[in-house]
């Protein structure tokens, strides 16, 4: 520690001029940089790109198609059916997991590394940091979904083909419309994915533990799926966060119905708002004693 501190007047003037709060954009840039530097997030995106390719290639090579699954019967001979088969599978547990890996860790890792005190003693407020993390986690979840969807649809079309699709009511959908419908079906994953991200964020803030932050939403999703599979729970079903993952079925029926889609949006919105509001309050009021 040899040199002296810079006390040139111009340095002080420049610092005084810039002294103040870091904006949301600065916090966002910081969070994005950290995410990009993490091996895990890059590996996850690479997985989202490569896994569907492997799945499509393997399933299409089967002599007997997976008949018990939605669109499984046509999956080996129709690329659109294949993309919908993968969608049904991904929505069961893969999407909550993919988004939770980042969202469940993003707050808890500050506890794990003891870095809350490092960032909160700069010029960024807890609220800004909170929203920056929320946006980065949501952004990552959406990017992962887009990569997964694009890789699935493209590989299915290339490997299996772009034949006319037989819809859920037995109607025949021409390839051009089928492509739009398949893309729309993948897009309906956005609301529940956002909601699962917010739930993971809440787990992350509340538990201060990355393992709980990641596993929590996945386990919650599985429990909801089990509950959703039970009979006689019609009143509860719309409240479950896994129900919106099935709302795309209506798009593939004839005539189309969008009721479940709208209901799913509402459910996802409620889960998102409640989770985020709770997470915000917990973070805002907690004492940072660790690190």
């Amino acid at each position: 520690m040899s040199a002296t501190v810079d006390d040139r007047p111009e340095v002080h003037a420049a610092l005084a001029a810039t002294r103040g709060q870091a904006g949301l954009a600065a916090a966002l840039r910081w969070e994005t940089r950290k995410l990009r530097a993490q091996l895990r997030s890059r590996a996850l995106l690479l997985g989202a790109l490569l896994a569907p390719i492997a799945v499509v290639v393997v399933v299409s090579a089967q002599s007997r198609p997976p008949k018990d699954t939605l669109f499984g019967r046509f999956a080996t001979e129709n690329g659109f059916a294949m993309a919908l088969l993968v969608l049904g599978f991904a929505s069961q547990w893969l999407l909550p997991l993919v988004t939770a890996v980042v969202a469940g860790d993003i707050f808890a890792s500050e506890d794990q590394h003891g870095t809350w005190k490092t960032v909160l003693t700069r010029s960024v407020s807890r609220s800004r940091l909170f929203w920056a993390k929320v946006l980065v986690a949501l952004g990552f979840g959406l990017v992962a979904l887009v990569v997964l969807a694009a890789a699935t649809i493209a590989t299915s079309a290339l490997v299996v083909g772009r034949q006319p699709l037989t819809g859920l009511s037995g109607q025949v959908v021409e390839p051009h419309s089928a492509l739009l419908l398949v893309a729309a079906a993948w897009a309906t994953m956005v609301p529940p994915l956002v909601a699962f991200t917010c739930v993971a964020l809440l787990f992350s803030v509340w538990s201060r533990n990355a393992a709980v932050g990641i596993a929590g939403p996945v386990v919650l999703g599985m429990v909801m799926q089990l509950v959703g599979g039970l009979g006689g729970i019609e009143a509860v079903r719309p409240l479950l966060l896994t129900t919106p993952f099935e709302a795309w079925h209506g798009l593939l029926a004839s005539p189309r119905f969008t009721g479940p889609l709208l209901e799913g949006c509402t459910t996802s919105l409620v889960w998102s708002v409640v989770s985020l509001a709770t997470a915000f309050l917990v973070l805002r009021h907690r004492d940072i004693t660790g690190g």
Partner: peptide
Amino acid sequence: PKFYPYLTGRQNLEGLRLLDGTGL
């Protein structure tokens, strides 16, 4: 003091500079 172990010393400081809202 605690830092992000997966970032370099310089990257840590660059990031903290962002959070300071200063531009030097």
